[in-house]
Each structure stands twice: as C-alpha cells, then as structure tokens.
Simulated assay, not measured.
Amino acid sequence: MRLRPATVPALRPAVAGVLALILFALGGTGAAQAQDVAFQSVRSSPDAPVTVTSDELSVDQGTGIAIFTGNVIVVQEGLRLNADKVTVDYVQGDRMQISTMTADGNVVMVSPTEAAQGDHAVYDVPGGTVVMTGDVLLTQGPNIMSGPKLTVDLRSGTGRMEGGGGRVRTVLQPGAQGSAP
C-alpha cells in the first residue's frame, strides 16, 4: 500500500490528525485489518438537495442514467465530492429520486474536518452510505489513514476503513492536536 500525495490542499492537514489518534487507539502497532473511524462533520441527510456541476452532461432518456464528466463537483450540505466522472442512477420508475451516484477517477470527498481520496466511490443516496475504494487515503487533522476500502455512514457520522486483501495503515503525529477518529 502506498501513500499518495494529496491532490487537494485540505487533504494533508486533515490526514495527519486522524492518523495520530488511530495509532494511539491501536496501541502503537500502526496497522490493522479494519479500523472504525469517527467522522465529526460528515453527517448529511440523504433528503438534502444534491448539486452537480461538470464540464459535460449526457443523459440517456431510455434508461434515465445521467453521466457527468470533466471536473465533476457534487455538493450535498457540508459534503463535497470531486471526480473525473459521476454516473447518476435513478430509482426505477421515479426519475426525480437518485438511487446511486458512482464516481470514478481522482475521487476526493471533503467535509469541514475530513478529507478522503480514492479511485472509485459509490454513494447510496437512500441508504446514506459512501463506499470508497482503490488506495483510499483519509485525513483528519494531522493524522492519516490508508486502506483499500472506506465505508462512511452519513446519517451517523461514522466510518470504517477495511483492509480486505491489504492492511489498514495509520500515521499519527505525536503531540499533534487533531480530531479524534
């Protein structure tokens, strides 16, 4: 597992805080197969309006699938997601209700105190969960956590970094003041 440099300036400070607290929670081992994470400001209501901005939009009227490409920005309450491409699937029979939003390529999810980046993310809007995969890098304050899969429950403000076939890695900044995982 490699740690990538942050592509969004807010990622670096956010990652450092999370990692310090996680290492403390792990008793200094620095690695685990799965780790629960508190998301203090990632709570969002699936019923809140979703705003999507992109360079291009393609809609298939037959299936009702909308594909946003090029510098895609999705905003819902205090949560922001950026990606190269976002595919929106609607609830069958109701093209006014979003079922899922699938983000691909340079995916970055940012809240006021956390930031995560990965290769792919699926936002289950009715379920209120975001699952991010592919070399996920999470920052909270000065701490950093990485792993193959991050699941965030937007209703409860909780998350879980899972190792799957890999391992969860944390980097904690001793003496750093940051938010707790």
Rank of each mutant, 00 (worst) to 15 (best):
T129S: 09
T53P: 00
V152F: 04
N143F: 08
R155G: 15
G166Y: 07
S44I: 01
V18L: 15
R12W: 12
M101S: 03
M145F: 10
A48N: 09
P142N: 15
T158D: 11
P49I: 05
I67N: 08
V50W: 00
Q173L: 14
G164T: 02
D135L: 14
S45L: 04
G147C: 05
V171T: 12
D47F: 00
T113Y: 03
I144S: 14
S41W: 01
V125C: 03
L21A: 14
I65W: 02
P126V: 03
M132S: 06
T87W: 02
V52M: 07
S156V: 07
V42D: 11
R4E: 14
T29H: 08
T7S: 05
I73Q: 14
H120S: 04
R169A: 15
L81E: 07
R160S: 15
V18I: 12
L150T: 06
D47W: 04
S111P: 01
N71M: 05
D119G: 07
T129M: 07
V8F: 10
S146V: 08
D135K: 13
P9H: 11
G157K: 01
A31S: 11
V110N: 05
L19H: 08
V59H: 14
G165S: 15
G105T: 00
V37N: 00
S111K: 02
T69P: 03
L3V: 05
R95V: 11
L137C: 07
D135A: 15
V122F: 09
T158R: 09
D89L: 11
M96I: 04
G178E: 01
R12G: 14
T139Y: 06
V107W: 03
N143E: 15
L137I: 12
V107N: 05
T7L: 09
D135H: 11
S99W: 03
M96H: 11
L154G: 07
L79R: 06
A25K: 10
I73C: 08
R95C: 04
E162A: 14
N106E: 07
S44N: 00
D36M: 02
V88G: 04
T158V: 10
V131L: 04
T158F: 10
V171P: 06
V59L: 15
N106W: 00
T63V: 07
D124Q: 03
V8D: 15
Q97Y: 05
G157A: 07
E56K: 14
D47C: 01
A6M: 08
V74C: 06
V130L: 03
D153P: 00
L23N: 13
A16F: 08
S111T: 05
G28C: 03
A16E: 14
Q76V: 02
L23Q: 12
R2N: 12
I65L: 10
V107F: 09
T7I: 10
T69K: 06
A16Q: 13
S146D: 12
L19V: 08
P49D: 12
A34D: 11
Q140W: 04
Q40E: 11
P13V: 03
A16S: 12
L26D: 15
D60M: 06
G118S: 08
T51E: 13
G127H: 01
P9Q: 14
V18E: 09
R169G: 15
M132T: 05
Q61H: 12
Q117Y: 00
V107S: 06
D36N: 09
A20L: 10
G70D: 06
T51M: 10
